[in-house]
């Protein structure tokens, strides 16, 4: 790397942001890193305002006061919501909140690398720019799997599968910026599992009260594919009384529901890749995103892909921060003249 002149730009705070459908994370060059649930809430009415104050709420606080808030998930379905003013505001608010969490010095310049779901990158690059314009001096926007790949140094002959909540994004790296053909996106991801699970459970236990939030936390705690050693039991209320339900098979079926499509897409992408390097790519598949934490998912995919030959799948160490750390690495490495002015 050419040595950069020491000047103002080195005082700037470099940040990497991972804008996710379910969770958003930030990592900054001052060593701080934080994450929040991608939820933004505005008090619904004057009662709510009296209780919560006239302010915007984020993350867990939103979950807590869900009933008295207008809640927006700014990146539902992997694209920036648009339509009402609140939708557009919510992204900006979320980014502002994330930046405030890493506590930049007052008036410190901020150079931000933002990773977004691949679909959002295509559809609303400008909305992202607008959302961050108030907070950052310079900005680059990249797709989420690319940020992960960059952060892990998997720049050559690697495949990243970022299984988030809204979308599953694929990206093949081959030593250059991935082109359109090297990236693909499926809309079946974590949220889809939740819906499947809710459907299966209400079918089997019509009397029990399950809701999306409960289901999501079940999955995050106990999600698995393949064989399970223990029985999975959860408590849910039937007519107000707690009853224990066995959800082992439902959980497996729901979690496995997204995998055939993922395996097929991965195989297709590898098959289209230069044959000389296919072996290398197959042995360098990296799973990222929240769904990579589902137990047994790597074994399942390895088996599914084994018809193409032996392959090796690894899971990122810390899926929560992999994207943000990758963004930060990118922000740190980016030569000054490559940054875009806001």
């Amino acid at each position: 790397m050419p040595k950069v002149k020491v000047s103002q730009q080195d005082k700037a705070l470099r940040i990497g942001i991972d804008l996710g459908t379910s969770r958003s994370a930030i990592a900054a060059s001052n060593g701080k890193r934080k994450w929040v649930q991608s939820l933004v809430g505005w008090p619904k009415d004057f009662v709510a305002r009296k209780m919560l104050g006239d302010r915007v709420l984020f993350g867990d606080e939103v979950k807590e006061h869900r009933l008295s808030l207008d809640v927006v998930r700014p990146l539902a379905h992997g694209v920036i919501k648009s339509g009402t003013e609140k939708d557009e505001e919510s992204v900006a608010e979320l980014i502002g909140h994330l930046i405030s969490l890493v506590e930049p010095r007052p008036r410190q310049k901020i150079f931000a690398a933002v990773g977004v779901p691949a679909e959002a990158l295509k559809v609303n690059k400008r909305a992202i720019r607008e959302a961050i314009a108030d907070y950052a001096e310079k900005l680059i926007v990249v797709s989420e799997p690319f940020a992960v790949a960059y952060g892990m140094g998997a720049l050559d002959n690697a495949m990243i599968i970022d299984m988030g909540a809204g979308t599953t994004d694929f990206c093949i790296m081959h030593g250059t910026m991935p082109s359109v053909d090297d990236q693909r996106s499926l809309t079946t991801a974590g949220d889809y599992i939740d819906e499947q699970l809710l459907g299966l459970l209400t079918e089997r236990y019509p009397d029990a009260d399950f809701n999306m939030n409960i289901i999501r936390s079940f999955k995050e705690e106990h999600g698995f594919v393949g064989d399970s050693l223990t029985q999975l039991e959860v408590e849910a209320r039937v007519e107000g009384r707690p009853v224990v339900h066995d959800i082992t098979s439902e959980m497996r079926r729901a979690c496995e529901s997204i995998l055939p499509a993922i395996a097929e897409t991965a195989m297709d992408m590898i098959a289209r890749f230069d044959p000389e390097y296919q072996d290398q790519v197959r042995n360098n598949i990296i799973l990222a995103g929240g769904c990579s934490q589902i137990a047994g998912i790597d074994t399942y995919l390895m088996e599914a892909l084994s018809e193409m030959g032996p392959c090796n799948i690894s899971i990122v160490d810390n899926p929560l921060y992999a994207g943000a750390q990758g963004g930060l690495a990118l922000a740190k490495d980016m030569p000054y003249e490559y940054w875009m002015d806001m």
Binding site: M1, I140, V142, Y150, L155, G175, T176, M177, L330, D333, M334, P335, Y338
Partner: peptide, 8 residues
């Protein structure tokens, strides 16, 4: 370096 240029 190629990739950074690509991002740019």
């Amino acid at each position: 370096a190629t990739i950074l240029y690509g991002v740019y």
